[in-house]
Design a binder for these strands. Structure first.
Length: 883
RNA sequence: GCCAGGGUGGCGGAAUUGGUAGACGCAAGGGACUUAAAAUCCCUCGAGUGAAAACUUGUACGGGUUCGAUUCCCGUCCCUGGUACCA
């Protein structure tokens, strides 16, 4: 013990997380540490993670998502922000209905029980939420506002009805969601699913295409992951082109022209036929009453009955049928045959395509198959011409226009705009912009969702439910069966109603909303979760929106994130909150990676894998199921089917919450996939134990030491080093946490700091050393408290500090204290490392060069050579060029 | 096919602007303590040569720019994700 601090002589208590964690969770709840203070004048910070579906079981993906969010929220609290960090439940959805069918439990009961269970599990994670703001989207107080928003949008013409195809199972007499259809058959019986047309409700998302693009350019560009923006841009799919109207031989239902969209008006003179989608409204009409009618009908029926996914697949054979009709190319009066083709999509452009086989590969293949003419209108250049008869594929590159009247000899790319202007001038079409984005179909033929507030009357047609009649409640007394259609449609008491207009007998809409409707505006509702006069309190929106930091899975890159961006603008335009609020709901986005684990398996007699959990394997690596040697498979996303999931509760029970949280933060940066390793959790658990033991062992010294006054003069050289490292660590950790969210490196720096503190032994009797050690330990606990809050609260208290570490200010560093007094200079000869030398900080270039040349090993390397040049990077490196 | 992002020890990952590659952790090996084990602590740890000092080599592969390249440029291979008859 000579020259050292006394160590506590009693046996310090071992780190036992389960004994302290509950206590501090209760403390935060009692003190309302993480509840928003509406009266606070501090700047606001709205922190939000994507809310979960209440499946009933917390999984590691949740632990990761919410741990990341909690670090940011805790950090912002410590930085003095007035933080709003709410939580809720995306509570409508299919699993509840499946549970009802399979186990006879009511979706509502099942859902609320799951919420209770999951809330308990989350609270055990020690997450700092404002539970006063909790919402569940299946609650009428939530969905009634959604119904109101829908009605207002309907009034404004932003909602409409049209026919659309759905997946229909004859066996089950019901509509299936896309995920319930696997390779064209249903998930339950494996029987065929057909496409059936139903009238459904749509939001006019397309009206916002341009605004959604503007938001990306003006607000999100720097703040959202590039990947997500790219996916959103490509989903919106803006493309410039021209509309061209081909004349029909005779009017069909009053239509005299067949409009097409093309991005290549420069190939207009090369059109040799026309292709229509099978769904095109004119498809059936064209052949009506002709000898082609039977063939055309058969072809359309065949195409429509095929699975959407199959139609989109690569090896799908391009087929078509001639309608017997022709239309006329306005620019040159050429009559071209009209075909129905199975590769033309009704969803894009006008559902009709002008076919230019010479310059489009699909049209080329189609023309060859059906013996249609190929007409070249672009040559690669003046000296190279194409021969249609000799072509083996379409020429899609740029070149010189030919056979195109007044455009002959011109560059095709440069002529595109002029041709569009020419069409406009002649009244044959004109410039246009087309979007890939489709209107949003919100009708779902399911029970467990928000009812669409509409009534159908034989006399008055479609009648919206009066606003004072909202909510249209989801009835509870319904039967759930796998077969026989929607429970809501069979619920007589729900369906039969009176018409609000004429008072006669009428029927209610029995479809419910897509669950993306609920998740599109929950971030707005959180600002005033119990507001009774509307979906949102405008004052609260002005105060809290936008969300400053949003965190969630990359799988929502387009779906949820596109719908909520649309919905935010929609609600703003409907006047629910003012235009002064940002048009974007989420200003910063972090998309975290998946939680994965290696898979373990044996093989059955057919060579197919039989997945194993860790518990299925004995200590010799053999299967308890079949006695075979267990093999290790790829690292894959944790899933029930692969048996590679890890139960968060088991981990928490074994290592404690802080270790579980810390591991998911330390194992990799948030945006990467995380590979789960039990040994890794043990590692961070060991680290936390070392912190715990260090504080316990030095507690007596730490408690009696005076607060460090910042005066470094009296410190021993080790003391000076520790003081410097303290400030360097604050700087490094702050930078890692602040914008980069690189918690893995922040934790690594804390570990290095901890290792240095453990090694530190102050000079005997040096009070300044004792103080600087105290300062270091307090800083360590403060920094770690955002990652491992429970142990840090306990240690903070143990160290005799008052208050909660959760509300103590984040430490700040002194720029001078961070600076090194001596620097290590790297010395290279011809760019190769040959040694290092210590030099005082601020050492001049000349001195650096002198020190480098004097280095023993360097002399050896430059011996007998001429020094041509010496490159000196101040404070870093000297490179000697010699030969 | 197209678009995007990657490829660094046995593993997860560091290296923020071109300047000492491999921080931190895991695993592994060796040692201390113990009757023993666990726990804990100490040491080693990219590959090769060497007793050591040191040297060679090394960030998918092949080139280039540079005094100097994991980092910048060109080409190739591989992986992951998104998207796909988009007219």
């Amino acid at each position: 013990m000579n020259g050292r601090f006394k160590w506590s002589m009693y046996m310090a208590a071992k780190y036992q997380p389960n004994e302290i964690e509950g206590k501090w969770q209760q403390f935060w709840e009692n003190e309302r540490t993480f509840y928003t203070n509406e009266a606070s004048l501090a700047p606001k910070f709205y922190m939000l993670e994507m809310f979960p579906y209440p499946s009933g079981r917390l999984h590691m993906g949740h632990v990761r998502n919410y741990s990341i969010g909690d670090v940011v929220a805790r950090y912002k609290v410590k930085c003095g922000f007035n933080v709003m960090h709410p939580f809720g439940w995306d509570a409508f959805g299919l699993p509840a209905e499946n549970a009802a069918i399979e186990r006879g439990v009511h979706p509502a009961g099942w859902t609320y029980a799951n919420i209770k269970d999951m809330r308990g599990q989350l609270q055990k994670l020690g997450l700092g939420y404002d539970w006063d703001r909790e919402i569940a989207t299946c609650h009428p107080d939530y969905y009634k506002w959604e119904q109101l928003i829908f009605l207002r949008a309907y009034e404004k013409g932003l909602v409409y009805r049209k026919k659309a195809l759905v997946n229909w199972s004859e066996k089950m007499q019901t509509v299936l969601a896309n995920e319930q259809v696997i390779d064209g058959v249903d998930y339950r019986y494996g029987l065929p699913v057909i496409q059936k047309e139903l009238t459904q409700w749509f939001f006019k998302t397309t009206a916002y295409a341009e605004e959604l693009l503007d938001g990306i350019d003006n607000v999100l560009e720097e703040n959202w992951p590039r990947r997500v923006l790219l996916e959103q841009r490509s989903r919106i799919g803006k493309s410039h082109g021209a509309r061209v109207e081909f004349r029909l031989e005779e009017a069909i239902e009053g239509e005299t022209t067949l409009p097409v969209f093309t991005t290549r008006p420069d190939t207009l003179w090369g059109v040799t036929f026309m292709s229509l989608a099978a769904e095109h409204p004119m498809a059936l009409k064209l052949a009506e009453g002709t000898d082609k009618e039977a063939d055309v009908n058969a072809f359309i029926q065949k195409t429509l009955s095929e699975d959407k996914r199959k139609r989109g697949s690569e090896d799908y054979e391009k087929q078509g049928v001639f309608t017997g009709k022709y239309c006329t190319n306005p620019v040159n009066g050429t009559k071209v045959p009209v075909y129905i083709a199975n590769f033309v999509l009704m969803d894009y452009g006008t559902g009709a395509v002008m076919a230019v086989p010479a310059h489009d590969q699909r049209d080329f293949e189609f023309a060859q198959k059906y013996g249609l003419p190929i007409k070249v209108v672009i040559h690669p250049d003046e000296n190279t011409s194409l021969d249609a008869a000799a072509m083996t594929e379409a020429y899609v590159e740029d070149g010189v226009m030919v056979n195109s009247e007044m455009f002959n000899g011109k560059n095709n790319r440069e002529s595109i705009e002029q041709i569009a202007d020419y069409l406009e001038e002649k009244g044959w079409g004109g410039k246009t912009i087309n979007y890939r984005l489709r209107d949003w179909c919100v009708s779902r033929q399911r029970y467990w969702g928000a009812p669409i507030p509409v009534i159908y009357c034989d006399k008055c047609d479609v009648v919206p439910v009066a606003e004072d009649q909202l909510p249209v409640m989801l009835p509870e007394d319904v039967k759930f069966e796998a077969e026989g259609g929607s429970p809501l449609a069979k619920c007589e008491s729900f369906v039969h109603t009176t018409c609000p207009k004429c008072g006669g007998a009428a029927r209610r809409e029995t479809d419910t909303f897509d669950t993306f409707m609920e998740s599109s505006w929950y971030q707005l509702r959180y600002a005033s979760p119990r507001f009774e006069k509307g979906p949102v309190d405008p004052a609260a929106i002005e105060k809290w929106l936008p969300v400053d930091q949003y965190i969630g899975g990359i799988e929502h890159a387009v779906g949820h994130l596109m719908y909520s961006r649309f919905y935010h603008r929609l609600m703003q335009d409907l006047g629910f909150f003012p235009k002064s609020v940002s048009p974007e709901p989420f200003h910063k986005l972090l998309t975290q990676g998946m939680v994965c684990k290696e898979t373990r398996f044996t093989k059955d007699e057919n060579g197919n894998p039989v997945w194993h959990t860790d518990d299925d394997i004995d200590e010799n690596g053999m299967s308890k199921k079949n006695g075979q040697k267990v093999l290790t498979g790829r690292v894959e996303k944790m899933s029930k089917s692969k048996y590679n999931g890890v139960d968060p509760e088991a981990i928490m029970a074994r290592y404690g919450v802080d270790s579980a949280r810390m591991f998911v933060l330390f194992a990799s940066p948030p945006e990467n996939d995380l590979v789960w390793k039990d040994e890794g959790v043990e590692g961070v658990h060991r680290f936390l134990s070392r912190v715990w033991n260090m504080v316990q062992q030095r507690l007596d010294d730490l408690k009696v030491a005076a607060a460090f006054d910042g005066n470094t003069a009296g410190l021993s050289s080790d003391g000076k080093e520790l003081h410097k490292l303290t400030h360097q660590t604050i700087k490094g950790v702050t930078e890692d946490v602040h914008e980069r969210f690189h918690f893995n490196t922040a934790i690594a720096k804390s570990m290095e700091f901890m290792n240095a503190i453990s090694k530190f032994r102050g000079e005997a009797g040096n009070a300044q050393d004792a103080s600087v050690q105290r300062d270091a330990v307090l800083v360590l606990v403060n920094l770690l408290s955002v990652f491992a809050p429970h142990i840090c609260e306990e240690l903070w208290q143990l160290l005799g500090q008052t208050g909660s570490i959760s509300t103590v200010a984040w430490p700040t560093y002194d720029e001078d204290a961070v600076k090194e007094s001596t620097i290590t200079i790297a010395i290279q000869v011809m760019g190769k490392m040959r040694g290092t030398v210590e030099a005082p900080a601020g050492c001049s270039k000349g001195e650096m060069e002198k020190l480098a040349l004097a280095h023993e090993n360097i002399q050896k390397h430059i011996e007998g050579k001429t020094v041509r040049k010496v490159i000196v990077v101040p404070g870093k490196l000297v490179n000697i060029v010699a030969n």
